[in-house]
Design a protein around this nucleic acid. Structure first.
Lengths: 143, 143
DNA sequence: GCTCAATCATTGATACGTCAACTAATTTAA
DNA sequence: TTAAATTAGTTGACGTATCAATGATTGAGC
């Protein structure tokens, strides 16, 4: 019991440490943060989308979404304009430049991922993904 | 190839999302953040330790360690004093109160971990830990 | 013994996530 | 039709991690 608890603790600590180490490395490798690339990726898939809908997809706080998009707009990667029919909505879309740049980002991301999983077999990757998905669910429903 | 890449991406995204969801839930369940509990845990194991040595153990930035310890000191959980022999070093130890409180924190942490891993067999936990350890190593040596 | 380098700790700047409070626009319903 | 509720977005306060710069103390080499 107490022995297995120590092992379980290691799992949780490992998850935590992986994140702390991944975040900066991901950014230095790809040139963009994971969150921001996720936002761009969602924009890449559609012609335009409201901030609200985008927020639901990436599932981070509204405030963070607003700030990221403003900065991406400043960098000219994204275009934002209000819906004339309902001025509460702000629609966001990728600029041409954004659409070009994201391709490069995604290549770097793939390279990064390949490195992180390079010694995992196809079978192991499947197992791992399933386990992580279960953990995610367990966290969500916890309490 | 491109198909497996999508799956690999899910793994990395899952890891990221797990962290984002875990952090606040961990804190609301246990009453303390994961990092801070880790610091306290290390202090629990020893009579006293220099900040530098502690920093190496938990492996987060010096600055963060300093700030955490100052706050823990303000809360009366921790005692800090300079080494008279070498004034560069600050030695940290748990206060009596800290030593008492940490017990409760750790119980809550165990409860949390049990919840997160409740549907994992002993075998699965072992597999998962091994995989996470490999990933962590891959990230460290990457590039 | 004195200067230079090394070591530990602190502080400042920046990034990014959370929640809560607020504004503006629209919808509901009395 | 107008007051209240809802919805989208923004902003502010806060926590905490990073890196870089600085301060303070000690040790090494001349």
């Amino acid at each position: 019991m107490s022995n297995s608890n120590i092992e379980d603790e290691k799992i949780i600590n490992r998850l935590y440490e992986i994140h702390r180490r991944t975040a900066p490395k991901f950014e230095s490798c790809t040139g963009i943060s994971q969150t921001r690339l996720e936002l761009l990726h969602e924009l890449y898939e559609v012609e335009k989308i409201s901030q609200r809908a985008l927020q639901k997809k990436v599932n981070i706080d509204h405030a963070a979404v607003t700030r990221h998009l403003k900065q991406l707009e400043d960098k000219g990667m994204v275009i934002r304009r209000k819906d004339p029919k309902d001025q509460r909505f702000t629609y966001v879309s990728l600029s041409e430049e954004g659409r070009l740049k994201i391709i490069h980002y995604r290549e770097e991301k793939e390279r990064f991922i390949s490195g992180v999983l390079h010694d995992f077999s196809e079978e192991e990757r499947k197992t791992l993904l399933k386990m992580l998905t279960r953990i995610q669910r367990n966290i969500e429903i916890f309490e």
